[in-house]
Simulated scan of single mutants.
Amino acid sequence: MATDSPARAARAASAPRPGGPGRGRGRRRRSPYPTWFYLPAAVVFGVLFVLPTFASFWFSLTRWTLFDSEFIGLDNFRLFFDEPQLVTGLRNTVVYAVLTSGAKVVLGMLLALFLTSQVAARGYLRSVVFFPVLVSTIGVGITFQVLMDPFGGFINEALAAVGIEGPGWLTDPRWALYSVALVDVWKGVGLATLIFIAGIVTIPREYFEAARVDGAGPLKNFLHITLPLARGATATVITLSLIGGLRSFELIWAMTRGGPGFTSDVIASVIYKQYQAGFYGLSTAGNVVLFLLVTAIVLPLTWLLNRREVEL
Rank of each mutant, 00 (worst) to 15 (best):
Y280F: 03
G163K: 08
T234D: 00
V294Y: 03
G199D: 06
F279E: 10
T65I: 08
T3G: 10
G20F: 00
V162A: 09
Q85W: 14
H224P: 14
F208D: 10
I200H: 11
S269Q: 06
K104C: 10
F262A: 07
V128W: 05
L305Y: 05
F249V: 03
V140Y: 06
F151W: 07
Y124P: 00
T93F: 06
E209K: 14
I252C: 05
L66G: 12
Y272T: 02
A285W: 04
V133F: 03
I195Q: 07
T100V: 00
A9C: 09
V105R: 04
A233F: 01
A211V: 10
A277C: 08
G215K: 04
V133R: 06
F80S: 02
F81V: 13
I138C: 15
W303D: 07
L219Q: 00
S117Q: 04
T143W: 11
A10D: 01
V98R: 00
G190Q: 10
V95K: 01
L301C: 01
V294P: 01
R257T: 02
E209H: 13
D172Q: 09
G26Y: 01
S31C: 13
G108M: 04
T93Q: 08
L134Y: 06
G19A: 12
V162L: 10
L51H: 04
D82Y: 13
G281L: 08
E206Y: 08
L51V: 12
R231M: 15
R174D: 12
A235G: 14
F81M: 05
R25V: 14
R307F: 03
G217C: 07
T234Q: 11
T239H: 08
W169P: 01
G108P: 09
R205I: 09
A9S: 13
T100W: 09
V44S: 07
M148F: 05
F67V: 15
V106S: 02
R247K: 15
E209W: 14
P18H: 11
G258R: 00
T256K: 03
V94F: 11
I252A: 07
G22P: 03
T100S: 03
T143C: 12
V294L: 05
L99D: 05
Q118V: 06
S283N: 04
L301P: 03
A161Y: 03
T263R: 15
R308I: 01
R25Q: 12
G259M: 11
L191E: 04
N76G: 08
V128A: 05
V128S: 07
M148E: 10
